[in-house]
Amino acid sequence: MKTVNLQVRINEDLKQEVSSILKAQGLSYTSMLDALFRQIIKERRIPFAIALPTITSDDTPTPSTLNKNGIYEQPKASLKASDAINTYGTTTTKDDVVISFDKIDKTGILNIRIDPKVKTLTTAILKEMGLTISQTVTIVSKQIQFTNDIPSTIHRPEWIDAINNNLWTNEDLNTRIKIGLNQAKKGIGDSAEKVFNDLLKDL
């Protein structure tokens, strides 16, 4: 099957956390996003509710996180001039100058392989919604982080990265191969001939 590389910028900590959650379920970002994108194409919508995790009133953000207009402010870090200017024997004045700046999230690159038709159609549909693929990946990643699971309304992929040694032990792989052989003997699923013919169509 022909695939193309898709690069998405995402918060590195979020990427690592979600990757671990998916790995525990035998999935990868590629398999999860492939299923999500195909569902977006089929249903022409984001197939899950976007919501923050439920919190108690005690956990509600305090007024100190709001500015005078009632708007949340980006967290800031402070740096004293004396913290930065300490070379060449420089001394600080009586009143230190404090510099404030926005904290910048550490971002990384998420690389996935995807069917070019799926990429094109998903990009077009999301554009009509005012979204990009990067934004959509971040949204679904945050939902997985909140619930420690894939949103229940996303159809889990029928195939899993079983041949990836980073996801499965040899014992797990052998067990799944046996399950597949037993299903084949009982006539469950498509024949090998049909599967290979379908794959050849994409070559």
Results as ranks from 00 to 15, higher is better:
S82M: 04
D96I: 09
T56D: 13
F37A: 01
Q39Y: 02
Y88G: 05
T87D: 12
I99D: 12
I40F: 02
I114R: 12
K117P: 05
D58A: 10
N111D: 14
V98P: 07
I41C: 03
I109R: 11
N86A: 04
S64D: 08
R44M: 05
T90H: 07
K68D: 15
P53R: 04
Q39S: 03
S64A: 08
D96E: 12
S100Q: 13
I50Y: 05
K103G: 12
V98Y: 07
P61D: 00
I109D: 07
V140S: 00
K119Q: 12
S82Q: 06
L52T: 08
P75Q: 03
I109V: 14
K103T: 15
D105A: 13
A51V: 13
T107I: 09
L110T: 04
T92K: 04
L52V: 07
Q74P: 10
N86S: 06
P53A: 04
K94V: 11
I114S: 10
L66R: 07
S57K: 10
L126C: 07
I85F: 13
G108F: 00
Q74C: 13
S134K: 06
L131G: 02
N86M: 04
R45V: 02
T122P: 03
E43R: 06
A49R: 09
I46N: 01
I109F: 10
K127C: 05
R44C: 05
I114C: 11
G89V: 00
T136R: 02
Q74K: 15
S78Q: 15
I139E: 02
T87L: 08
S64W: 03
S141M: 01
R113S: 13
Q39D: 02
N86Y: 06
D105G: 08
L121V: 08
L66A: 06
S141H: 00
K68A: 14
F37V: 02
V140M: 02
K119G: 06
I125F: 11
P75I: 04
T56S: 15
L121Q: 10
Y72R: 07
T62M: 04
K68P: 03
V118A: 04
I85Y: 12
T93D: 10
Y72N: 05
T62F: 05
K106L: 14
S64T: 03
I109S: 10
L131E: 04
K94Y: 09
T120V: 09
D83A: 13
L126N: 05
D96T: 11
T91R: 11
A35C: 05
I139M: 09
S141N: 01
T65L: 10
V97I: 15
N86T: 06
T54Q: 14
I41Q: 03
T122V: 02
N111A: 12
V137H: 00
D105I: 08
I40E: 00
T65I: 08
R38L: 01
R45M: 06
T65R: 08
K80H: 13
I104H: 08
T136L: 03
